[in-house]
C-alpha cells in the first residue's frame, strides 16, 4: 500500500486531489485528515490549500499543522504542497495586509500587479487572478518532472505569487507579466503554485511521479 495523507485544515475542496491520486493505482490509499499521527505515519503527504491566506494560516496554527509539516520535512518524508499550501511555506504573505507564514522556505508572497495594474511585455493589461493554463519552465531535473515535457501547460488560479529568496530552490518558473515561482524544491519537499489535480495529463504525471518518489533529488 502507498499511503498518502492529504492534510485537512478545513479549507475547501480536497476531493479533487484525493480522487486524482486514487485514480493512479489500486495500491494508493488516500486519507484526508488533520490527525498528526496519521499524517506522520503516511508514506507521503499532500499539503493543499485554497482561499485566503489569513484564514488558512489561522487554521494551520490552530490544528498544529505547522509543526506536522516541519516534522515531516525534517524527517525526509515526501511532501507535496499545492497552491496556497505552497504560499503558506514562505516567510510571509502580502495578502490580507501582512500574514506571517511558516518560514519553511525563504521568500515572500506578493500580489500580481501590486496594488495597481499588471501588464505584459507588449503593454497589454493582464487579468488578475492569473486563471487558466500556462507554461512551466523546468529549472531543475527533478524526479517530479519525469515524463513531463519542458514548458508543459498546467492549470493555475491565484492572485498572489511566490518570490523565493533562495533561487537555488526554484524548480519551475512561469511568466505572467513577469516571471514567478511555479515550483520550489528543497530536499523531500516539492511545492507547486498550479493545481496538478486539475492539469489533466501533465498534472496526473506529476502526481504519479510524487507517488513513486523517495524524497531524494
Amino acid at each position: 500500500m502507498n499511503n498518502v495523507a492529504v492534510i485537512d485544515y478545513g479549507m475547501g475542496n480536497l476531493h479533487s486531489v484525493s480522487k486524482a491520486l486514487e485514480s493512479l493505482g489500486n495500491d494508493v490509499r488516500v486519507t484526508i485528515t488533520s490527525d498528526a499521527d496519521v499524517i506522520l505515519s503516511a508514506d507521503r503527504i499532500v499539503f493543499p490549500g485554497v482561499g485566503a491566506i489569513r484564514d488558512c494560516m489561522a487554521e494551520i496554527r490552530r490544528l498544529g499543522v505547522d509543526a506536522i509539516v516541519s516534522e515531516a520535512v525534517a524527517a525526509g518524508k515526501p511532501v507535496l504542497a499545492i497552491c496556497v499550501g505552497m504560499q503558506a511555506l514562505m516567510d510571509f504573505s502580502e495578502e490580507n495586509g501582512h500574514v506571517e507564514c511558516l518560514g519553511i522556505l525563504p521568500g515572500e508572497v506578493k500580489r500580481f500587479g501590486g496594488s495597481g495594474v499588471l501588464f505584459d511585455a507588449e503593454g497589454e493589461r493582464l487579468k488578475v487572478p492569473h486563471m487558466g493554463w500556462n507554461n512551466v519552465r523546468q529549472m531543475t531535473g527533478h524526479p517530479l518532472w519525469q515524463g513531463i515535457d519542458d514548458n508543459s501547460r498546467f492549470y493555475f488560479v491565484h492572485s498572489y505569487f511566490v518570490e523565493p529568496a533562495d533561487h537555488s530552490q526554484l524548480a519551475g518558473e512561469t511568466e505572467y507579466g513577469h516571471r514567478f515561482a511555479a515550483a520550489l524544491s528543497k530536499n523531500s519537499l516539492f511545492a507547486v503554485q498550479f493545481h496538478p489535480e486539475k492539469s489533466q495529463h501533465c498534472g496526473l504525471q506529476l502526481l504519479r511521479n510524487f507517488l513513486a518518489w523517495d524524497g531524494q533529488c
Binding site: H15, S16, K19, S23, K198, Q200
Partner: peptide
C-alpha cells in the same frame, strides 16, 4: 458532480 470530479481532472 462527484462522479465527474472523480474522473475528469480539469476544472
Amino acid at each position: 458532480v462527484e462522479a465527474i470530479a472523480s474522473q475528469v481532472f480539469i476544472p
